[in-house]
Design a protein around this nucleic acid. Structure first.
Lengths: 205, 205
DNA sequence: GACCTTCTCACCTACGTGTTAAGC
DNA sequence: TCGCTTAACACGTAGGTGAGAAGG
């Protein structure tokens, strides 16, 4: 955690590292329905995307930003009659690999200049080449972001978990309200939005 | 240049920084015809791409890789009767902006792990938003790559110019052999390769 | 007219979507 | 059968090509 060592002059400016999740309204719409994220063999992007604004770093020091996914509970989940219910014993959880933000390593000034988006992270249900995060389908996960100081003795500065970004990994969407919400907001799914709006022009909410 | 200061223990490993241009055969084919690169208002990528393999860095130290374009001579060039000829006095040369490789800053280990490609640099004839390099059309340029040590006192380690990457900036190709060679090797021009091969299936060389 | 630049265009690369049917 | 996973698919986003007509 923060400032666990006696601080020298170069570390005093990091006492108040702050990380704020962007697009919280969108995340909360998904969270209210119990969010789902597709996992595939070759890896699937997340939607919504985890995007954070960072402040309180030393502009001239070097940091890396990391994302990982901790098991949110010890259950296997099942979608029955329109509801997610916790099932039997979970499979042994492999330690979630860590995704390193592609701008890493970089100066504090870079991370603070604009919100940092983890749009390129890919979720998979198979272990294969680097860059992808392997998750267990039908298990619930809690994304977490970490800031590590690098370019010297490596040191974990802070970790943040965003409850509204929790989701259940799936190989196909279970709740069709989730599907609808994804189509409505993800530009890459616009083909399906057009199809839906042609048959359903006044739907909202 | 290299090791201009008395070296301390962390700098001794950088005495033999080596930078080798990749795809030299391709570059030399273009160079033999006098290479041309398109410049546009919004910026145009280079083809071929400048790609280098780097060795001799300290794996744990931090570096940035830079690309710039120096005026190769003081002339304005003109394509007349199938030949490039030097013309009148050149316009005053604005200092070429520097392009910072998007992986910058990064560890020596990163730069040495695989060849580093400058495929995203864009050449323009107008000065506008960041990321683009402004050049004078019909002037000849010499690309140069620089390695700078960062994350501490900044220090230029080495500069490399690759003669076979020289080119004349143009707003439209002048030598149609250059056009043919670009179409033959650039995947993004495949539409024109297909058209040409349908009418000319056995051309080579 | 001659020369150079700009813009629109069809046609690609590359890849992110949910759908659907098939596989297990 | 049922539940879950996979692969092919149509249809988008995003953007890199030279061609060719138009502009200056």
């Amino acid at each position: 955690r923060e400032s666990s060592e006696p601080s020298d002059k170069s570390e005093t400016s990091e006492r108040d590292v702050r990380v704020v999740l962007e697009e919280r309204v969108l995340w909360e719409q998904f969270h209210a329905l119990t969010n789902e994220m597709i996992v595939t063999k070759t890896g699937r992007r997340m939607f919504p995307v985890i995007k954070v604004s960072v402040s309180g770093l030393d502009p001239h020091a070097m940091y890396s930003l990391l994302l990982d996914f901790s098991a949110a509970d010890a259950h296997r989940w099942k979608y029955v009659n329109g509801e997610w219910v916790a099932g039997g014993k979970p499979e042994p959880q492999p330690p979630s690999c860590v995704y390193i933000h592609p701008d890493s390593p970089n100066f504090g000034a870079h991370w603070m200049r604009a919100p940092v988006s983890f749009c390129k992270v890919k979720l998979s249900n198979k272990m294969n080449g680097s860059g992808q995060i392997m998750l267990n389908s039908l298990h619930k996960y809690q994304p977490r972001m970490h800031i590590v100081r690098v370019g010297g003795p490596q040191r974990l500065l802070s970790s943040h978990a965003f409850p509204e970004t929790r989701f259940i990994a799936v190989t196909a969407y279970q709740n069709e309200e989730i599907t609808t919400l994804k189509i409505r907001h993800n530009p890459f799914a616009k083909a399906f939005l057009d199809a839906k709006e042609r048959s359903d022009p006044h739907k909202d909410g």
